[in-house]
Design a protein around this nucleic acid. Structure first.
Lengths: 145, 145
DNA sequence: ATTTCTGCAAAAGGTTTGCAAAGCG
DNA sequence: CGCTTTGCAAACCTTTTGCAGAAAT
């Protein structure tokens, strides 16, 4: 956790604690869409007494501070990722659950227009594509053959 | 529930039951994004002995038959809506939770290209916009003033 | 008649909360 | 030091499951 992270927490009126640094590090290192339990397991390696409820509370804190984003990828639990990472979207395989990230040049102008037309102020865009990944498609084909 | 609904269930190898008809009717009448409990409460009006687990099992059945779609709008529970309705997306107000549906002419060509580029077969597109609705934005502005 | 489906109650996730002790500013 | 945050255990809420009886084909 570097200075800019700490600054964001302070700006949100939150204290800097070792647990918060660990959780953020775990999410940063995790490389996208980790769930609470994965974050917990990773962070616990550095601090065995860390509790799962602290992880949940920290996730909320980081969300409030605008540092991470919550994903709803269709599974029963939530996933989290850093907010400053490059804007990207998610493809989820409905067969094996694999998540692939992809970029798509969303037109800023288009979004502004949409927001204006429907009269709301946008803060997040979630584009999720659902379908079959290459591997599962291959299996499906074989099955039908 | 009309003949075409029954046909879809039969095609999926499912039986026609009064509970399934009721649940589908509740979703159809509900006008988009109902959660399991709302569906339960609505359907229960017609059949007081209906159980919540039957609603959940029916939701799964209808999903398998391709008749309804599951939404992940950021709340802790899922929402469901008819699959045959016009393609649309959702705006969710992060303050009050209100959901507004909107249409957006997704380029079919673009989607095909995306699927090809990343090598997956698309079946669903979920575009969810998060932000502040007109009303909440007004309140926010007043608060800051 | 056979097989699927339902209702009930209990279990199983994931997430939140109350409280006393510990830690940050 | 005062107030926030943590760890633990228990509670909570949504969703799933086992089983015996009921309904559909």
């Amino acid at each position: 956790m570097d200075e800019s992270d700490k600054k964001m927490l302070r700006r949100a009126g939150k204290r800097i604690t070792s647990q918060r640094m660990l959780v953020l590090e775990a999410i940063r290192e995790g490389g996208g869409h980790l769930d609470a339990d994965e974050i917990y397991r990773r962070a616990k390696l550095q601090a065995p007494r860390l509790s799962l409820s602290t992880v949940y509370r920290t996730i909320n804190t980081l969300k409030e501070a605008g540092m991470i984003e919550e994903l709803h990828l269709g599974e029963e639990h939530h996933h989290y990722e850093l907010r400053d990472a490059k804007v990207h979207h998610h493809f989820v395989c409905q067969n094996c659950g694999r998540v692939v990230e992809f970029e798509w040049p969303f037109s800023e102008q288009l979004l502004r227009d949409l927001g204006e037309k429907y009269d709301f102020e946008l803060t997040e865009i979630h584009l999720d594509l659902v379908g079959y990944c290459a591997e599962c498609r291959r299996k499906k084909t074989n099955r039908n053959a």
